[in-house]
């Protein structure tokens, strides 16, 4: 097991009021898996992601990655934030080089690696541009290139495509799916879009709020590149709907 979450709970204390946002989470994730955390707003997806990534610590329980307990963030597991976290005063290329500056490598090497990943996300023509000159989708690509450039084992993404329009969003889903296949990273991806989860995940972790729990885990044994309109896709999507009780159970039984 690569990532192991053991009985993790999180309670926030704010002016004498306790909010329990995660209740006894258990989850194991294998190397190279694409995991989606899916659930309605407030079910603790971001909290769980932050704890696995080491930005926050659980009140009880622990997270183990590669046999080591997670205490703080590490360049070995990089988080891509919803608002991208790009530095507006740096060009695309300088942004992608940010994580490399910590490593002791030569200027030429840095430049080469940055170019390589900028090409991977298709932004070579824009490498001298500043983030404010790019569209939301392009900015997200820069963030992806920046994360990949340090060659991490795990990539965490918290609703990375939440701010994009439907078309761009689907393009980005294709792209991240391709990158995942090419680079063999472990990806943990937070979303509240059911189709997005079915399109991307090997396994969908379904979470419910009040307090945040793992309700069930759904396997998505579909080949890539997935077709959003084929029967198998829709069947799995319906199962997820069912988990959230957004579809009548009887209907499903008849159709099966």
């Amino acid at each position: 097991m690569f990532i192991k979450i053991n009985n993790a709970s999180k309670t926030y204390k704010n002016n004498n009021r306790d909010t329990k946002s995660l209740d006894n989470i258990n989850l194991t994730i294998e190397k190279g898996e694409f995991i989606c955390l899916l659930g309605p707003s407030g079910c603790g997806k971001s909290t769980l992601l932050n704890i696995i990534a080491g930005f926050d610590s659980p009140t009880n329980g622990e997270v183990i990655i590669d046999d080591k307990s997670v205490k703080e963030p590490s360049p070995n597991y990089v988080t891509i934030f919803q608002n991208y976290g790009l530095l507006p005063w740096r060009s695309v290329k300088k942004n992608v080089e940010l994580g490399l500056e910590v490593k002791k490598i030569s200027k030429e090497e840095k430049s080469k690696i940055a170019d390589e990943y900028i090409e991977l996300v298709g932004l070579t023509k824009f490498s001298k541009h500043h983030p404010s000159q790019l569209s939301g989708g392009m900015q997200q690509r820069v963030a992806i290139a920046r994360a990949l450039a340090v060659d991490p084992e795990i990539i965490f993404m918290d609703e990375p495509f939440g701010a994009l329009d439907a078309m761009t969003r689907m393009n980005m889903q294709d792209e991240i799916s391709n990158i995942w296949e090419q680079k063999k990273k472990t990806i943990i991806f937070v979303t509240h879009d059911i189709e997005e989860a079915v399109f991307l995940a090997d396994r969908i972790v379904i979470m419910t709020p009040g307090p945040g729990k793992v309700k069930s885990i759904i396997n998505v044994p579909m080949k890539r590149k997935r077709d959003r309109t084929n029967e198998e896709f829709l069947k799995i999507r319906d199962r997820v709907f069912l988990e959230f009780k957004m579809k009548e159970e009887i209907e499903i039984e008849y159709s099966i």
């Binding site: 990534a53 930005f55 703080e72 963030p73 590490s74 360049p75 990089v78 988080t79 934030f81 608002n83 976290g85 530095l87 940010l98 994580g99 500056e101 910590v102 340090v150």
Partner: peptide, 16 residues
Amino acid sequence: KTYLKVAKNFGMKQYS
């Protein structure tokens, strides 16, 4: 705060 999280994630030292 996101910038600070990014910096921490990449393991940047306090001075950097």
